[in-house]
Write a protein that binds this DNA or RNA. Structure first.
Lengths: 338, 338
DNA sequence: TTTGGTTGTTTAAACGTTTAAGTATAAATT
DNA sequence: AATTTATACTTAAACGTTTAAACAACCAAA
């Protein structure tokens, strides 16, 4: 209840000006030539009165809030919450704090989050961009607000970003299935034009092509983000009920796999005898599936750390504007029993 | 790059005082008796110059940041990230933004997070408190900062909090095991004095007692948060390797269960034939264990929503100070095959 | 004709900081 | 002794808002 002590309180308490106190607190007593015993008095008062700086006032003055806005598709998805945790830790080490929001893959929600955060004067953004948000990213660039894209990226919008080798690792994953003598390989993916998903599809297609397997459109199935559970169910039932004899499936993300596995169980399909599986990303569920799933492992630690690193470099202007960096984190294939 | 427009810019552009502009923007044209065509001019300029209020300046003036500090044990734990997501959504609806931090169950980290957030003038906290942080909560109360505790609580520290019926539902869970003719029931829990865990232990003990089963200290095993994987492994190996013939186990949290299940698989123990299992909380892993796990389901939606509701009521002073509310969200037992 | 009310607008202080510039005194250099 | 320089501190403006109070011009009623 009792008001917090401000600089002014300390100044009054000692009968000096706030300037002096400010200098001492900011360790500028040298430059400002504050007398040594004055320094001591102020230091003591700071402790006695338990002074805590008001960062809002500082922000107003400096124009910097030391706050990063984090926008992902859904913070409750372990993929994003793991990244969030790493970003949080890294950011705090650098004196930043993170505010977060979930876009639910909606461009409008994304825009609204960006606006709110801009009004709150965040210094920078880390964004896993939703589809059709290119202009939002461009807008931030124009406004001179640092942004680092993670997970997804826009080939046409140069930007700092941290991505993985989507196409190559997808190709490797599918190649692994082929090496296991599978040739009727399906893929379950999202209905989206986002480049990281496109790259995964291309990896899939390339693997087929370079092994002389004809690509069948019916073997790529798509689910919408908004209605994932239903879509996965109908698509997979249709896929496995159809004329094609599917003997392997590649899941483009962990959520797709989790819902997909439920359908596969429901249909009584035996893994890996009848169906081999590789999924993107990790999930606790994969470990407990009766045939522990093989998956593409992204090092989220690297993703998060690099994102914060890029951002801080940008914020401290160690990098030239308009010169964007792309960090590629190498994903790797973890082979298990599926 | 081009500076953002401020109130002053608009005022200058129109050759009027900032006061006028402020009144119009805040819809106080009536009270301030601003002339009708002036209102129009200002409205137009606001749009033409794309004015966006600086919330930092507003905060400095008002002393309110419309920001909630969220502190949980680990945001990457799905239990907490799910709650975080709900809190985020609810808070935004009320015009609040959430900054988050993970305490890793450490009182020091928790204190440091609280300090950082206080310096940033957050309006209120939602905290899943770590052990030995009673004084931190009391400190916030003394400072008049609203706090809502979630998941955990301190019986000796009255505070707004949202909790579940830990003891009762634990008793019900163990009773279920007993009804299934199990009598050698073990429990795996955290090494902590936190009341919610104590309550779960008491529920376990009560169920045994009311069924005339003698409580055996050796049947309660504890793991430390810091070294959970190792501890779970050694404790369970010791438990199942010992003289007691364990025929059921009750896990006090989802993480304990996830690590525990791995050990159980490793030891080749058959569920539910040799061992019946009930766990607290949910996990994707539970669905894919070969015998889908029975568990205690907490409605996290209710937890999150109630937490924000309590907080907002407190912030808007609809509630008397020193009169704290406890919301109990009823958990329920979900029976499956384990 | 004073008094009072209405209407429309400005002034200025305040929130808690930072910091360039100013002032006053003492010490050092001519 | 006069000037410079160093030392120790204060002043005041600024960041972008809000808002009570003041002001000016007009109109109406006594």
């Amino acid at each position: 209840m009792n008001k917090k002590t401000s600089l002014k309180d300390i100044a009054q308490h000692l009968g000096v000006s706030t300037a002096l106190v400010s200098y001492v607190i900011n360790h500028k007593e040298k430059e400002a030539r504050v007398g040594p015993e004055m320094v001591k008095k102020i230091r003591k008062a700071v402790i006695d009165l338990n002074y805590q700086p008001n960062l809002i006032a500082k922000s107003l003055k400096s124009g910097k809030t030391k706050t990063i806005g984090l926008i992902v598709a859904d913070i409750s998805n372990p993929f994003f919450s793991t990244i969030a945790r790493i970003i949080e830790d890294e950011a705090r080490k650098q004196g930043y704090v993170v505010i977060f929001g979930s876009s639910d893959e909606s461009a409008e929600k994304s825009q609204s989050l960006i606006s709110v955060y801009l009004n709150r004067q965040v210094d920078a953004f880390i964004i896993a961009p939703a589809e059709n948000t290119e202009d939002q990213i461009l807008g931030l660039h124009k406004a001179g607000i640092p942004v680092v894209l993670i997970d997804r990226y826009f080939p046409e919008v140069p930007s700092d970003c941290v991505m993985i080798n989507n196409a190559a690792i997808s190709e490797a994953a599918v190649q692994y299935l082929i090496d296991k003598k599978r040739s009727k390989i399906a893929m379950l993916t999202y209905k989206t034009k986002l480049a990281h998903i496109e790259a995964r599809k291309n990896g899939y297609k390339n693997a087929l092509k370079s092994n002389g397997i004809k690509f069948d459109r019916k073997m790529i199935r798509e689910a919408s983000y908004q209605d994932i559970e239903n879509d996965v169910t109908t698509q997979l039932k249709d896929l496995f009920g159809g004329p094609q004899k599917v003997d392997a499936i590649f899941f483009a993300t962990n959520s797709l796999a989790v819902y997909g596995l439920k359908v596969i169980n429901q249909l009584g399909i035996k893994v890996p005898q009848q169906l081999a599986i590789v999924s993107f990303d990790q999930s606790e569920a994969f470990d407990f599936f009766y045939a522990p799933l093989s998956y593409v492992s992204q090092c989220l630690e690297n993703v998060g750390k690099n994102a914060v690193k890029l951002l801080v470099e940008r914020l401290e202007q160690k990098v030239k504007p308009k010169q964007y960096a792309t960090v590629v984190v190498e994903a790797k294939l973890v082979i298990r029993e599926s």
